[in-house]
Each structure stands twice: as structure tokens, then as C-alpha cells.
Design a protein around this nucleic acid. Sequence first.
DNA 1: CGCTCCAATTGATATTTATCAAGAGCCTAG
DNA 2: CTAGGCTCTTGATAAATATCAATTGGAGCG
Lengths: 232, 232
Amino acid sequence: MRQDELTEIRALPLFRNMEAENFDRLFRGAYVQTFPQGVELAREGEMADFFHVVLDGSVELFANWNGRKSTLATIHPLSTFILAATIKNGPYLMSAQTLEKSRMILLPSTDVRAHFAADSGFARAIVLELAQCYRVVVKSHKDIKLRTSPERLANYLLRQSATAADPSSFDLKMEKKRLASFLGMTPENLSRSIKALNTHGVEIALNNVRIVDFNLLRDYAKPDDLIDNPTI
Amino acid sequence: MRQDELTEIRALPLFRNMEAENFDRLFRGAYVQTFPQGVELAREGEMADFFHVVLDGSVELFANWNGRKSTLATIHPLSTFILAATIKNGPYLMSAQTLEKSRMILLPSTDVRAHFAADSGFARAIVLELAQCYRVVVKSHKDIKLRTSPERLANYLLRQSATAADPSSFDLKMEKKRLASFLGMTPENLSRSIKALNTHGVEIALNNVRIVDFNLLRDYAKPDDLIDNPTI
DNA sequence: CGCTCCAATTGATATTTATCAAGAGCCTAG
DNA sequence: CTAGGCTCTTGATAAATATCAATTGGAGCG
């Protein structure tokens, strides 16, 4: 691992408060690796051998049951997965695969658990990270239980808009097929939901989203901080 | 707070590894209180003033949006809510109310955060608790995204059966209205799903569930440890 | 350039789920 | 008792969503 990479990683909230000696020891056993698109990094049911930190690219978390598949989340830099399985020394509840060429840190789970037990600064950082993860899932759960599928799409677009360079024109960051699965609908249904949003101030052509009337869209979507604000 | 209560609480995984002095200090500011049925203990959006540990009774966690309401979880002894909001010093994402007369510990959030920062044994216990909470929500999320509503009911019954004194005959622990909301369906739909399970080895009369053919029910429900096993 | 592949869309239809309305059963206060 | 209020159930219908089949339309490639 290069020195500038180590410096960058050392500055992450998760590692910032580790004692220097522990940080060095933990990262002696770490890998920084670049994976091509479509690599399966974790398979649900298997034991969590590695804790992952995404440095570049993106990772899809998904789950299967009875022949069905659902995308549960996508992870972007600089975020982590799947911490809870590592800490509990339990099986992954979700599978993970790269959506594009991605660079990430792999930390052996046993090392993470050892340092978590020995370094209280690290333990506290893990608490904050886990609390964050927990709240993200709760928000997703509220989203899917309280909203219809076009409502979920409308709010998704508002959330994307909030992080885009140009809030009124941006590109979808996923294939529509995957977006549909993430939003809990079929691809056919997503197509129809997209058309339905034309009457609520949104125009989607190919991968480009243009929000032509924010007030109209907000009136329909009714975004709520307790579901849609990623910072709280 | 009575001494025997304190001894019982001290033995909980969350507090077991706290230093004695810190435990005493934390519980000097604690309340143990008994609430009647239907008391709202937390309202979503408000700041987390207290961290709760349920000693007796049960608590419903639910959320509202746009005039709709959904039950997200029910908390039984000896479990906690809502830790993540307390740790992050953020707003509750869910509301909480007692489902029956319930006794619980209330710990001021500021005290919890202070001890979390100062006591590494406590910090580590919180990590494990949070990791557990996270995995519970992920399982719920998989349940609702991957299964139809009668499938969710069938698997719910199998999970209840696993904890019942008599696995083949037990009572529902909630009003059907609430169970319907928890399972993500309307009460009318729950009634119909219950009838539909007659052909899969289940008979429900009033509140009593009798599983007359486990193999038949399992064939239909296809329970999966990665969704239905609360211990992993 | 034309071919092929695959994602995306569209239309028709089926299934699932929700809504609305009515009735049955049960609990409890008076 | 019994009347009222509640949950639960049932039936009829509507709405939402999924499925199936066919077509469109890029993107990559020889």
C-alpha cells in the first residue's frame, strides 16, 4: 500500500482516532485491491472474512431468496460494508459485487475484531459507523413500507438531485434494471413510473433526468427528512 | 431503583462490562418506570432524550408518513430502543408506544453518550447491541422486499412457533390489525392470508394458531436463516 | 456499415393487494 | 342482560403491481 493511500485512509473517521501503533499493525495485514466490474466480493451466508472500505468505484449489496433477487443498497466511496457481520463474527446477510471497476481496502475480520477489542478509539468510531448504517436501513425500510413505487422513485430523484452538480439535470447512476430492484419494483413498472412523473415536473430521457418543476415534484413526492435526509 | 433490579440490570450484556464506578454513576441518573398501555415514549423527529431498556411488557416501534402509519418492530424484554439515535444525538426515526403495561429503564442520552466515550467496556457492548439491531432491520428489509404477504405471514408463524412453549399451538401476541401493519399488509388482507394458509398446514381460530403440518408449512414458507433466524 | 446483443419500452393481461361497504362476533359499561 | 363500540371477517370492486410477449433502440464489434 502506498504512503499517500495510507495517509488518506488514516484520515477517515473510522481510523482517525485509532492509536498510531494499532493503525500500523492493523494495516500491515490489509490489502488495497482493485477489482474489475462484476466481481462478487461477498456471498450471503458465508462467514465475514473481510471488512471492506470502498475507496473508488461502487458496490451493490443484494440478497436472494427462493430464486428472487433484490438490490438492497449501493455503496460509494468512502463508505464501508459489511461491518456488522465482521463485528458479530456472523455470516453475511447480503451479497456484494462491484458495479464498476473499484478499489477497496480489505481488512481481515479477525484483525478488525482484535483491534476493536483493544483500541477504544477504534471501538467508538465503529459505534458511530454502525449507528449510521442502522439509520440508513431504517430509512429504507420506512421508504418501502410507507410509499408506493412512483412515490419512491420521485423521492429517489429528489435525493439524487440534492447531491448532483446541477440539481435540475443529472444522470442516473445505475442501470434502470438495478434501480428498479433497489426501489422495489419491476423494470417494466419503473418505465411506467417514469412516464407517470412527467405530470409531476420530471422528464427522463435515456439516462438523463431533468427536473423542470421542483415545486410540482415536491408536492407529489412529499420528501421527509426522517426518510430522505442522509445526513441525520 | 431497588437493589435486586440493579443487580438484574447489571447482568445485562450491555452493562455487564462497564466499570463498577461508571455503572453506579450512570444509574444515579436513571429512572425505572412503569407505564400503562398506550403511552407514547418517543415521537419520530424529536431529539432522543432517553435511551430505553424494556424490562417488562412490550413496545411498538412505528413510523408515519403522509397520513400513513406502519409498525416497524415490537420490542420485548430484555431489549433496547432506540440506541442509534441516542448515540448519534439525532432525532428518533421511529415513534414508540407501549403495547401493554410496561416497565423500563430510562437513561438520559447525554449520560449514555458520556459513558460511551469514557468507558470502553460499555462502548464495546454498545457496538454488539447496534450490530444486532442492524442485522434485525436488514432481515426485515429482506423479508419485505423478497416475499409476498402470505409468505411473510407463513414465515412469521414459523418464527413465533420456534419460541413458543408448544410449537404446534400458540397464541398471537398482537392484535391482528397491528400484525397486519407489521407484516406490511392491510387487516383485510391478513384475514385472507390466514385463510389461504389453511391449505398449507395452519389453522388459526381467533388468536390461537395451530400448526397441523409443519412440513407442509415449511414447504410453502421456505424459511431461511438469513432472514428468519434471530440468533445469527 | 450492418449485425448482434441487450437493456429499455410498450401493450395486453393476470395477479396481488387495497379499498369500500356490510355484517358477525366479542368485550365491556351501565 | 343488552347496547355500543370495537376488531375481525367477508364480499364486491378498484387500484397497484407483476408477468408475458413483442418491439424499439442504443452500444459494441467484425
